[in-house]
Simulated scan of single mutants.
Amino acid sequence: MAAAATRGRKAAMEDRHVLVALDPSRGVSQAQGAVGLQQQVSVGGVFDGHAGYATAAYAAQHIPHLLHEALSGRPNRAQGGPRVPGRGLLNPCSALAASFTWFDRWWADARCDPSLTEHGWDDSGSTAVVGLVSGQHLIVANAGDSIALLARGGSGQRLSVEHRLDNAAEAERVLEAGGRLVAFKPGAVPRVMGTSNQTRFKGSMVTRSLGDFAFKHPQALLSAEPHVTQQELAPSDRLVVLTSDGVTDVLPDDDMLGVAMRALEQTQNCTNSGSALAKAAAMAIMTAAMEAGSHDNITVVTMLLDWGGEYATD
């Protein structure tokens, strides 16, 4: 597992990412090497912040601990952080889905804590895409327009859904919640606006996110509930890629995977380190997005799947 991230051509870096392993006895630890399918639970995530970085930063910090608590039944050791409500273990699919909404409920109050936020108030938001590998199962949850892509055989398979207003089901949900769809120029994808001045002037490009409480109260126009999909992995599955829209705005899925797979092949001539190979794939995608003209923050997480100890552990 590895990540590559850059501020790119934006004035500030608002993306965050996470690469961790969850172990019932050791808790949350930094992930190293490729993803061993019969070992601990591996988690990668990309959080694309907007209107600030705080929501993305705290989500990256706390969601892994919520997952560990839900999967193991052991208390969350992150002091002052969100807790799993009630007791009892959840399966990985349910735990990952619930971790988004648990975090969002906690952050609704915590964002007003002067000890946690720069000005004692935070109105930022963040998209989120998190991939969890448990045994030979891959579970992906996403809210917003950050994406998950699985390299399956010779092609790519999207495992996420883009929550934007060009998604008809999302547009209908926003309208039913009392929102307005406003296009600021002809042909542009509409943005979410409220019926009063409680929403930020430029509206929201995404229809689901963490944070963004100006769009959740008093009207619940945006939702933190993620789209969740589960896949049984096969030996032809080699790589999981998670990215912010700084990549997908300029690179089609096939181009992205082509760049990553070429980087893997070239790097394998020099090393069989799982970390080095995953890093090469992530860096290649990031570089290709920059060269394609991305004007956004760029974050790429790559999860290299190891089916039989093929890759060295660092």
Rank of each mutant, 00 (worst) to 15 (best):
R9T: 01
A11F: 13
A11E: 11
A11V: 09
A12Q: 15
D15P: 10
L22V: 05
V28S: 09
Q38H: 15
Q40M: 02
G44W: 01
D48T: 06
G49W: 01
G49R: 00
H50R: 08
A54Q: 01
T55I: 01
Y58A: 05
A59G: 06
A60F: 01
H62K: 03
I63T: 01
H65M: 08
H68G: 04
A70Q: 07
A78L: 15
V84P: 03
G86W: 10
G88H: 11
G88A: 07
C93Q: 13
S115A: 13
D122P: 06
G125T: 06
G131F: 00
V133E: 09
G135W: 14
H137R: 13
N142Q: 09
D145Q: 12
S146R: 08
A148T: 10
L149R: 01
L149W: 03
L150Y: 03
R152N: 05
R158Y: 13
V161E: 14
V161C: 11
E162D: 15
D166H: 13
N167W: 12
E172T: 10
E176D: 09
G179C: 07
P190H: 04
V192M: 11
S196D: 15
T207K: 09
R208A: 07
S209C: 15
D212Q: 04
F213Y: 14
A220P: 15
S223R: 11
A224Y: 02
E225Y: 09
E225W: 11
Q230P: 09
Q230I: 04
E232K: 12
L233M: 09
D237H: 08
R238L: 01
S244M: 11
D245R: 13
D249I: 00
D255F: 10
D255L: 15
M256E: 09
R262F: 02
A280C: 13
A282P: 08
A282S: 12
M290P: 00
